[in-house]
Simulated assay, not measured.
Amino acid sequence: MTDTHVDREALSALREIMEEGYPELLDTFLADSESRLGELQKTSDAKVLSAVAHSFKGSASNMGAVRLAALCQELESEAKDKSPSEIARMVADITGEFADVRPVYEDERQHAMTH
């Protein structure tokens, strides 16, 4: 996993700021991401896609998931101009990227719980 996906410095900064709240922050991010992915996968409404992508982008960006944030940004700004098949591809990219970074956050959580 290269750091084009996750900004490790952002994560260590969060770890220091949040201290004992850090595992909960990770939990919330993982749970919110799951529910946002679910929403993206079941809607074809450009307004909904844009709004969900916007909030997903914000949390991904806060958590240092840089590539995920960039993909969400792209969906947010282009949802209204894309065909359903292009949107499906963008959502698939976001889903795939989350699947790639998810273990990083799960490892962080394990690590945070044992320290």
Rank of each mutant, 00 (worst) to 15 (best):
residue 14 L to P: 00
residue 40 L to K: 10
residue 63 M to G: 01
residue 55 S to M: 06
residue 91 V to T: 09
residue 80 K to N: 04
residue 93 D to L: 14
residue 82 K to A: 14
residue 68 L to P: 07
residue 38 G to W: 05
residue 13 A to N: 13
residue 85 S to I: 12
residue 18 M to N: 03
residue 96 G to W: 08
residue 91 V to L: 07
residue 97 E to M: 11
residue 47 K to Q: 12
residue 59 S to Y: 09
residue 76 E to G: 10
residue 9 E to L: 13
residue 43 T to H: 05
residue 51 A to H: 09
residue 35 S to I: 01
residue 24 E to D: 10
residue 68 L to W: 09
residue 33 S to F: 03
residue 89 R to A: 15
residue 13 A to G: 09
residue 19 E to R: 05
residue 76 E to Y: 11
residue 53 A to I: 06
residue 86 E to R: 08
residue 65 A to R: 02
residue 39 E to W: 06
residue 86 E to S: 14
residue 69 A to T: 03
residue 56 F to W: 02
residue 24 E to I: 01
residue 17 I to L: 13
residue 71 L to K: 03
residue 21 G to V: 03
residue 8 R to L: 14
residue 58 G to F: 04
residue 26 L to M: 09
residue 63 M to K: 01
residue 34 E to R: 02
residue 88 A to H: 02
residue 23 P to K: 12
residue 55 S to W: 01
residue 56 F to D: 03
residue 46 A to D: 12
residue 27 D to M: 06
residue 36 R to H: 13
residue 79 A to I: 10
residue 14 L to M: 11
residue 54 H to K: 01
residue 23 P to Q: 12
residue 33 S to L: 01
residue 20 E to A: 15
residue 13 A to S: 14
residue 78 E to G: 15
residue 67 R to N: 11
residue 61 S to W: 02
residue 66 V to C: 07
residue 10 A to D: 03
residue 51 A to I: 00
residue 14 L to T: 00
residue 78 E to Q: 14
residue 26 L to F: 10
residue 69 A to D: 10
residue 54 H to A: 12
residue 92 A to H: 03
residue 17 I to G: 05
residue 15 R to C: 03
residue 42 K to F: 07
residue 86 E to L: 10
residue 13 A to T: 12
residue 66 V to M: 14
residue 58 G to R: 01
residue 24 E to F: 01
residue 7 D to W: 07
residue 62 N to G: 15
residue 22 Y to A: 04
residue 22 Y to E: 06
residue 85 S to H: 06
residue 17 I to Q: 05
residue 92 A to G: 07
residue 89 R to G: 13
residue 37 L to Y: 06
residue 27 D to C: 04
residue 60 A to V: 00
residue 53 A to S: 13
residue 96 G to R: 03
residue 35 S to A: 06
residue 97 E to F: 04
residue 60 A to K: 00
residue 35 S to E: 09
residue 25 L to C: 07
residue 79 A to P: 14
residue 36 R to S: 13
residue 71 L to W: 00
residue 51 A to D: 13
residue 51 A to Y: 00
residue 67 R to V: 07
residue 31 A to G: 09
residue 6 V to T: 04
